[in-house]
Design a protein around this nucleic acid. Structure first.
Lengths: 228, 228
DNA sequence: TAATCGATAAATACAGTATATCGCCATGAG
DNA sequence: CTCATGGCGATATACTGTATTTATCGATTA
């Protein structure tokens, strides 16, 4: 019997902590979507009984909050540009990129207030960049308006992406995509404008469309902030 | 023994159909939120075994889609204004009002493409109002940008509303609201801009804030459509 | 050193979920 | 009257989040 045969010492599993739990949950979600995240599976991945988790989190919703905050660490850029507009734009794009990396984030975005440390840091950076540009109310309105836009835009993008993926390849032409239903609807002639849009519409790159809408909103914000 | 004593004929439960199922589900969701909607409860409310539902819907997600589309019937206004801008504004406000009536809609908004007949009718009306104002790509961008805004804004509003409700009364001052956590965070001094915002911020009426942001976005859209 | 105590982890338990499958029963046709 | 078909109910499975109880193990004290 050599050392190699000797069984490993019981290697008591690495001590549990929130970080490891959240990391496991995120891995699970990255692989199989939010619905693949169950406390049991998270626990299993950590080689631990399900109830162990309740020593570190008190509910599943709290775990989701922690996951969202964790991703916000990816969203906060290491160095901020000077220009307020660039700060807002980059925040939007980084949020979008993070969501493309972690699609499940789309399901959580805007669903609950984000009060974790990383999310707060992101907000802080944003507010700091706009500080003094106008009265506080206007600044808040600006931040929230841009936030509302990119939140909604990202959610829609992911929703469409999933729909395309689910119905097999197909882009903006819902027609074949969503099966006979929409086709039939359009054929009724009750939706001429929509039919025309579906028929004549170019399907623009998602990122371009996102960026364009964002720029429009930023233009509007610039006017209101008195920075045009 | 009078007619009144005579037992009712067995009143075999009204024949099931999607409408009744969706109505029951909406009622349930209005009362207890989306999480109160389970196929079992919906079935119970219709005095029917859970499996009966699968003759009319094929999955719970499909039921949610139907619920969303049903609410879109409330969103489509009976008569459309002439002005494209008014059309967009009213769509946004009606969506918001519908969501305030059916808070669960916030959880579903933007989560999946809305392809039901009522949702399509809403889209149709919107596109028709913007038809010809600019090239199709620009019009689509306009509709989607406004849609992204109000979707995101409504979700955030409902999220905040719930948070306030859950933490007991308290408005924009998260501080006491979200417990000691945020207070501690702010006290660290790592978030000066945020602290200032929390401290000096007026808490504006949600509807006003929604309308203001919307107007900003509409202004931007007007410019891009060449209608200023 | 022995024994007791306290905390920590594990196992079990419970109520509820979406959905698949099977068997009955009633109503229609032949 | 018989038979078949198809809707309907009950049952079954594999999970879920979470509460509660049981076991285990380390540290402290006698």
């Amino acid at each position: 019997m050599t050392v190699w045969d000797r069984p490993e010492p019981p290697t008591r599993p690495a001590p549990l902590d929130r970080e490891r739990i959240v990391a496991a949950a995120i891995a699970l979600a990255d692989e199989g979507g939010l619905e693949a995240v169950s406390l049991r599976k998270v626990a299993a991945r950590l080689d631990v009984g399900p109830m162990r988790l309740y020593g570190y989190i008190s509910t599943k919703e709290e775990l989701f909050d922690l996951m969202v905050d964790e991703v916000h660490a990816e969203i906060l850029p290491e160095e901020q540009p000077r220009d307020w507009r660039e700060v807002l734009r980059i925040r939007a794009h980084r949020t979008r990129q993070a969501t493309l990396r972690h699609e499940w984030l789309a399901d959580l975005l805007g669903g609950r207030p984000t009060l974790g440390p990383n999310a707060l840091a992101v907000t802080e950076a944003t507010l700091a960049a706009l500080d003094g540009l106008a009265d506080l109310d206007t600044v808040m309105r600006a931040v929230e308006t841009v936030g509302a836009y990119f939140t909604g835009a990202i959610r829609r993008e992911i929703a469409n992406l999933r729909a395309e993926r689910a119905t097999g390849l197909s882009k903006l032409d819902w027609q074949r995509a969503s099966g006979p239903h929409v086709t039939r609807m359009l054929a009724t002639g009750r939706f001429p404008a929509l039919a025309k849009a579906v028929h004549d519409g170019t399907d623009v790159d998602a990122e371009v469309s996102f960026a364009t809408g964002l720029d429009w909103v930023l233009d509007a914000v610039a006017v209101k902030l008195g920075c045009e």
